[in-house]
């Protein structure tokens, strides 16, 4: 245990090397950084107001002025795609962070304590995994929005942000399970390893063992799960929005853009093409990064 610091620094360096060797993963990092920057600086980058209709410019195909064309209200699609990225990325990243945290916490508790605690949590995980998620998400979505229900009142406090928060919450609700299962399995095996046994023998308390010893050692899996989770969350958000249960105007997400584009895809296919492409690129990049991280952090799982 004394030499861990030195060893882990070396390990980290090796990991970084391995990650950089994964060329697509490195490229994906660049793509994501660009996307995040363009979302943050959308206001400075966009040539047009993304909310401003222009009745004289309905359904313009891509051109020099409107790179991605214009939409059913004459709004600039490029501007909307950039702003849409804000919501989609925010929802994706936050939902993945929270669901990974929840999944990790439950997995660690379940794996560490075992017995009835483990049984209870894993039963609950089974139940959640047996629920067809998308239909239930729709029901919960309706519940969250309706005035009068306690959940809706809770979210109403957040004012303008309530829709985005509600979407994030329902995605989290149905996406922590796989992390919980993986972490539990990892903890079960880590628990038997020397360092954990040693800590236990030294009389360390449960929370300390869990969070200072077990969690750091499972970090590789947690980081990979979180990265892959971003892509999953973005896909869920787009699916929900596509079915009409997503973000509300004037906020815009790639999913809501696609949902509307459906109606006009015969005369304006670009309306569906660009937001879909952005979802695809983003999710693809996160998946590559996740893959690269897995290679880098966890050499055993290399295929």
């Amino acid at each position: 245990m004394i030499s861990t610091t030195a060893a882990s620094t070396a390990q980290q360096r090796r990991g970084l090397k391995r990650f950089l060797r994964h060329r697509l993963a490195s490229l994906s990092i660049v793509v994501i950084v660009l996307l995040v920057l363009s979302a943050i600086f959308a206001a400075q980058l966009v040539p047009f107001d993304y909310r401003q209709p222009n009745l004289l410019e309905l359904f313009l195909p891509p051109s020099i002025t409107h790179w991605f064309g214009s939409d059913d209200l004459g709004r600039d699609v490029l501007s909307r795609v950039l702003y849409g990225g804000r919501v989609s990325l925010l929802v994706g990243i936050l939902a993945a962070l929270v669901s990974t945290t929840v999944g990790t916490a439950l997995g660690v508790i379940s794996g560490y304590f075992g017995g009835w605690v483990d049984n209870l949590i894993m039963r609950f995980t089974d139940i959640m995994l047996s629920v067809p998620t998308l239909p239930i998400l729709i029901v919960v979505g309706a519940l969250l929005k309706e005035s009068g229900t306690p959940l809706a009142e809770f979210f109403a406090r957040f004012g303008a942000a309530k829709n985005i928060l509600a979407i994030i919450s329902i995605i989290v609700l149905f996406s922590w399970m796989s992390t919980a299962r993986l972490i539990r399995a990892e903890i079960l095996s880590l628990k038997e390893r020397d360092f954990a046994q040693a800590a236990l023998a030294l009389g360390a308390r449960a929370p300390r063992i869990m969070f200072s010893h077990l969690v750091p050692n499972a970090l590789a899996i947690i980081i990979v799960q979180a990265t892959l989770g971003v892509g999953r969350a973005i896909l869920i958000e787009s699916g929900l929005s596509f079915l009409g249960f997503g973000i509300q105007s004037p906020d815009v997400s790639w999913g809501t853009m696609l949902s509307r584009a459906q109606q006009y895809f015969l005369i304006a296919p670009w309306l569906a093409f660009f937001p879909g492409l952005m979802i695809f690129l983003t999710v693809l990049s996160f998946n590559y990064i996740g893959d690269g991280l897995r290679d880098a952090l966890d050499p055993r799982s290399r295929a």
């Binding site: 909310r51 009409g244 949902s259």
Partner: peptide, 16 residues
């Protein structure tokens, strides 16, 4: 009503 594209189009127009 959510998910009705024609209505949402009108709504966004009126919103602006």
């Amino acid at each position: 009503t959510a998910g009705n594209a024609t209505r949402e189009r009108i709504q966004e127009f009126f919103q602006s």
